Amino acid sequence: MKNSCLHSLEHVILSFLKNFITFAIAIIIIFINGTFVYTYFKSHVFQRDPRYVLYIHLVINDMIMLTIAVALQIMAYTLPLKLAPCCILLSSKTFFFINSAPLNLAGMALERYIAVCKPLHHVQICTVQRTYGFITLIWAISLMPSVTDVIFLVATQPLSIFSRNVICYESNISTHLPLCRPQGLLLCFVFLTVLITYLNVLWAARAASGLNQASARNARNTILLHGVQLLICMSSFVFPFIDIMLVTTWPEKRSTILFTTYLISGILPRLLSPLIYGVRDKTGKILFVSLL
């Protein structure tokens, strides 16, 4: 009996520590991103630049997705949810993931490609109005999986199933309901887009000279960093297999392994966007200085 109580107490302490660590990291990331968002809306210079319109859209989506992800983690440890609100939260997380990582990164890479490879047409093609139109298209595409989920579930499942209590995390829900998850296909498409734009900018950088070469080199490095972002996002599909291998090897450390890989693949990448544009980008350094 005593050993059972000690084991329960240890489980509660570990659960609290995991939630506290995740919550603390999320608050720091949201604070940094929120400062960038605040500075953006205070400056008309950034609002008139299409690349920063896309950038701030990416940051806002990351903030919302991070908030939902942390809320889902805390609820998974503390209280069960009805299946209906759980599906809504998971679909929302998927929506903001597609909204930010794959499609927004593709738009940002294409903008850099046009700026370097078609500089005479950049002002005409990459306008703020067209950028908002592209963002609207991103939202429409991102909504499709969620709308498909709702139509499919209502058509195939009895309504009574949505009143069940469940521990709300995706691998658990997939045993109850099959949901539409096209992230893998989108990520592959965007990866090809980023790769093609990077190669074109690389060739342009080699052919350019003087200031044009420096501009092309900066654009090439920016696209390369977007590729790194994308690879980290794609790693979320690899980590489940890594989890299986690690848990099989060290089954007694299952909880620690799953928590660590979750932090690496799900939480920390949300900090990359402000670092890429806030630290290395010359104009973005104004945003970074605002943190100091």
Rank of each mutant, 00 (worst) to 15 (best):
N218G: 05
L186K: 08
S174M: 14
L177N: 03
E252G: 05
W250C: 09
L177K: 06
L179S: 11
R217T: 14
P182T: 06
Q213S: 07
H226D: 03
N218V: 03
S171F: 13
I196L: 05
P182S: 00
F237R: 08
F237Y: 12
N221D: 11
F191Y: 09
A214N: 11
P240R: 08
P158H: 03
H176E: 10
P178A: 12
M245T: 14
N221R: 06
V238H: 01
D149I: 03
I232L: 09
Y198E: 01
L177R: 06
V228E: 02
E252K: 13
R181Y: 14
C180L: 13
E170M: 15
F259W: 12
Q157H: 07
T249D: 10
Y169T: 04
Q229D: 09
T256D: 15
K253S: 12
S163G: 06
A205R: 08
L246Q: 04
G184A: 15
V228K: 01
Y169N: 09
D149R: 02
I223R: 03
T222V: 06
F259Q: 06
S174L: 15
I257P: 11
S255Q: 13
R181V: 11
S163H: 10
R164N: 10
V166Y: 05
L185Y: 12
C233P: 02
I223L: 05
M245W: 13
L224G: 02
V228L: 11
Y262V: 00
